[in-house]
């Protein structure tokens, strides 16, 4: 489904990703872990097509197409969803309007019938239960005056409504207390299926207690330096990142 080869990315003059390789098949859950500044969020943003990230080398293939050619909205139409680390507040734009427009834009581009108001309402009522969203959050402006937890929940709620093929969750666990983390995780777990792939970008193992990944990768210095199963995350929790990062000095082809 997703094939990243030798990806190099710059922000301004600074090279962040330095030859990243990653391959994800349909239905897999991959956790990307790594110390601060290793390039985790850069990867998430490059996949979603944010401005300001220059790809200098390498390729990203998504469902056989060149992903890097596509505008952010075209990626969304193609089924890519980014849950933002810092969800953006948009005063004056209603949460539900946004979602309805998004759902219908995606449906239109897939050649599906657009939903009318009644159908749409039925859809979101259903999805709201997944993340225990309060009704009033729907009628408010996008993320405006939401608490940190509400914003993250809203992201997962949007993911549920938009039913992406590839979901990238960028530090969705950060800033959540344990109860909120459980709710968000349950939401994500309920959205797992054979077709849907998920990339979990996180600094902490804690999230992986609730969302079990199939693979764990360690990103450091702009590359994946170690990959393994869920047990790798536990090891990281125990020993921190230093041992791997040190290990990596000298041998560069770990991934």
């Amino acid at each position: 489904m997703l094939e990243i080869q030798n990806l190099h990315t710059k922000i301004g003059d600074k090279e962040i990703l330095k030859g990243l390789n990653l391959s994800i098949k349909a239905g897999e859950v991959h956790a990307i872990m790594g110390p601060n500044g290793s390039g985790k969020s850069t990867l998430a943003n490059v996949l979603a097509g944010r401005d300001g990230y220059e790809v200098t080398q390498g390729s990203v293939e998504y469902e056989g197409k060149d992903l890097l050619e596509l505008a952010p909205e075209e990626r969304a139409w193609a089924g890519i969803f980014l849950a933002f680390q810092y969800p953006v507040e948009i005063p004056g734009v209603n949460n539900v309007y946004l979602l309805k427009a998004a759902v219908n834009a995606i449906r239109k581009n897939r050649g599906e019938q657009e939903l009318d108001a009644v159908e749409f309402l039925a859809l979101i009522k259903d999805k709201m239960k997944l993340v225990k969203m309060k009704d009033d959050l729907l009628s408010r402006s996008v993320n405006e005056d939401f608490s940190g937890g509400e914003k993250k929940r809203n992201e997962i709620f949007q993911m549920a409504v938009l039913e992406p093929k590839l979901a990238i969750l960028d530090e969705t666990d950060s800033g959540l207390d344990i109860d909120a983390l459980k709710i968000v995780s349950e939401g994500v777990n309920s959205l797992r299926n054979e077709e849907r792939s998920i990339i979990l970008v996180t600094h902490y193992q804690r999230l992986l207690d609730y969302i079990k990944p199939d693979y764990v990768h360690v990103l450091s210095g702009g590359k994946i330096i170690k990959s393994g199963g869920p047990e790798l995350a536990l090891e990281l929790e125990e020993k921190g990142y230093d041992w791997i990062v040190k290990d990596d000095k000298g041998e560069n082809e770990a991934a």
């Binding site: 505008a71 952010p72 909205e73 980014l82 969800p87 427009a101 995606i106 949007q158 938009l162």
Partner: peptide
Amino acid sequence: FYLRSRAI
């Protein structure tokens, strides 16, 4: 960007 990443 947020709106575009939401398919708009």
